[in-house]
């Protein structure tokens, strides 16, 4: 076991008087894929937004590569290599695809042509339409753009918030294939997903959140194998869009 690259200790997040996250702790080892799963409103997104600096935590401690980043603003963390693929993709719809990718390299000050070319090679659909406004892309393509844009920033840790949300099952497969590649290239991934089974199948380690606290954690395989956890927290498999309806890999 190596030292974790990202450690979250007793994290608390409040919106006014409402406590959304009440003492969550987790860690990610370099190169691993860690997932936070749980129902809507369990506090998953609040955790990830606190880690990325988009939200100011009410308490607790976050360290990244050994440094305390609990109060570091988002724009500094991107430059340090902690990059978020936000919920709802947040692409810049009126800007061109090219400009969206360029914005991924904002902190470098340069154009990052090399890493942009690498993304065009990896996602040919973006290359064909690079001069179009990003709003012209389909939902799945926009998700790929959001991921590509984050990769241009050359992250060491990538925080992904609900990347499969609202996408057709076939596109979800594609998104998870890309997540697998990112992880295989050595980037640490912290994945927040409502699609819990799918996320746990891809992950090394899993944390189940409920009402702003971790109720179960352990190796992803173990969580998936535990009938009580599956029954209580992961729900029944349904055929809803974005849910993985198939019987295992």
């Amino acid at each position: 076991m190596s030292d974790p690259i990202l450690t979250v200790t007793d994290l608390r997040v409040s919106y006014g008087r409402v406590e959304a996250v009440r003492g969550v702790s987790f860690s990610a080892e370099p190169g691993s894929l860690v997932t936070l799963v749980g129902a809507n409103g369990a506090g998953k997104s609040s955790v990830i937004n606190a880690v990325s600096g988009m939200l100011r935590p009410a308490g607790g401690r976050i360290t990244f590569e050994g440094c305390d980043i609990t109060r570091t603003p988002a724009h500094k963390l991107v430059a340090q290599g902690l990059v978020q693929v936000p919920e709802g993709r947040q692409i810049l719809a009126t800007l061109t695809i090219e400009d969206n990718l360029r914005m991924g390299a904002w902190h470098t000050g340069g154009t990052a042509q090399q890493s942009m070319d690498a993304m065009y090679e990896r996602f040919p659909v973006l290359a064909q339409r690079r001069a179009l406004p990003a709003g012209a892309l389909s939902g799945g393509e926009q998700q790929m753009l959001a991921i590509a844009r984050a990769l241009v920033a050359k992250p060491t840790v990538m925080l992904m918030d609900e990347p499969s949300m609202g996408l057709a099952p076939k596109i979800v497969d594609e998104v998870f294939r890309v997540i697998g590649e990112i992880r295989a290239s050595g980037t640490t991934v912290v994945l927040v997903e409502q699609n819990a089974r799918r996320a746990l199948r891809a992950a090394d380690h899993g944390y189940v959140l409920q009402n702003g606290a971790v109720v179960h954690s352990g190796p992803a395989v173990g969580l998936l194998a535990d009938e009580r956890i599956v029954q209580a927290y992961l729900g029944v498999e349904t055929g809803r869009a974005g849910e993985d309806g198939r019987a295992g890999p």
Binding site: S52, A74, H75, V78, V83, Q90, L92, D99, G104, A153
Partner: peptide, 16 residues
């Protein structure tokens, strides 16, 4: 233009 379009997205991308 990124801030004009979506300040949240701009922040996520590392824009001050």
């Amino acid at each position: 233009r990124a801030v004009a379009e979506n300040p949240t997205a701009a922040r996520v991308l590392g824009v001050n």
